[in-house]
């Protein structure tokens, strides 16, 4: 009984519960016929939200006002440039990956430079940065649609032992993030800064360094997601990142990470990402039109956040 109470006090349990309910509701309609297919599709598509969500979670943990709006533009730029650089050759896969990561690092450095040097609120700094990055993506793309190298295209669309490869990549990144957050000094520092920046500064934490690395880390994860998404969908498109702006924020918050910062939650991101995909596919299965589907998605997001409840003012 005690264990049960403890389980329900975990912030991530709500997103997992909601994801499971929706999953069950969907396969009930199809009579269980699509169980495996639905699960695999959910894992594959959730993987992208998980990867960008992890980065966004690190940034949001830094405290109020910290948010990275340049995620979609970074994804697009990394995807287009990496595909152009690889030029459909299998031998260029690793250099292409390196290019994507470098773009992430560059955007991250740019973001934090604006935040720090110009003392701009992160929302506006990353927004301005995203305009510039998006322009760069438009300029490099020029209407070209280059295919990914065949090996990468196969890798991103197939599964190992029934589990989609993309989900495995997301799992590895999630484990890494969890280790970094829970077991390293850096992770503790992020939480400390999110709880109180002045206190963290007084405690001798290198606040600027930690924030800098966090913004770079977020941009690198976004670049990585862009690289994988471009390979998965058979080419980069200029609008490929757009839905991940709201998605990356939604999965973090629905997953139980405190919006006020200082408290992050890796498992919750998985639950929330699966949930977000499953909601859409459930409403599709029911054969509802786009309008109704959007309304239902919104109402479900709000009900989850209402059920999970806000934190008590004192508990922040």
């Amino acid at each position: 009984m005690n264990a049960l109470v403890r389980l329900f006090s975990r912030p991530w349990i709500w997103s997992w519960g909601a994801a499971f309910v929706i999953w069950f509701a969907t396969i009930m309609v199809t009579g269980g016929a699509s169980t495996l297919g639905l699960t695999q599709a959910a894992l594959t598509f959730a993987a992208f939200s998980i990867i960008v969500g992890l980065g966004q979670m690190f940034v949001i943990t830094l405290g109020p006002g910290n948010i990275d709006l340049s995620v979609p533009a970074t994804m697009t730029l990394a995807g287009t440039v990496a595909l152009k650089f690889m030029n459909v050759e299998n031998g260029m896969i690793l250099p292409g990956l390196a290019v994507a990561v470098l773009i992430g690092v560059a955007v991250g450095i740019g973001n934090y430079a604006l935040i720090k040097a110009l003392r701009i609120p992160p929302i506006i700094a990353t927004l301005s940065m995203s305009f510039i990055v998006q322009s760069a993506a438009i300029w490099t793309n020029r209407g070209l649609r280059i295919k990914p190298p065949s090996f990468l295209a196969d890798f991103t669309t197939s599964a190992t032992l029934g589990v989609p490869n993309l989900a495995l990549v997301a799992l590895a990144l999630s484990l890494l993030s969890w280790l970094v957050l829970e077991k390293t000094v850096y992770g503790r520092w992020i939480s400390a800064i999110g709880q109180s920046m002045p206190a963290a500064r007084m405690a001798g934490i290198p606040v600027d360094g930690v924030r800098f690395i966090t913004y770079v880390f977020c941009a690198v994860l976004a670049a990585l997601a862009g690289y994988l998404l471009a390979c998965f969908s058979g080419g980069a498109a200029l609008n490929m990142g757009s839905e991940y702006l709201l998605m990356s924020i939604a999965v973090v918050v629905i997953g139980g990470t405190a919006v006020a910062g200082g408290d992050s939650n890796v498992p919750g991101i998985w639950g929330a990402s699966l949930f977000m995909f499953l909601v859409v596919s459930m409403l599709n299965t029911y054969g509802l039109g786009a309008g109704i589907r959007l309304i239902m998605t919104g109402l479900i997001i709000i009900s989850v956040i209402l059920l999970a409840g806000g934190r008590k003012p004192g508990a922040r």
Partner: peptide, 9 residues
């Protein structure tokens, strides 16, 4: 964010 889906719908 949730409301934005509702209004869009």
């Amino acid at each position: 964010l949730g409301m934005s889906f509702v209004w869009a719908g």
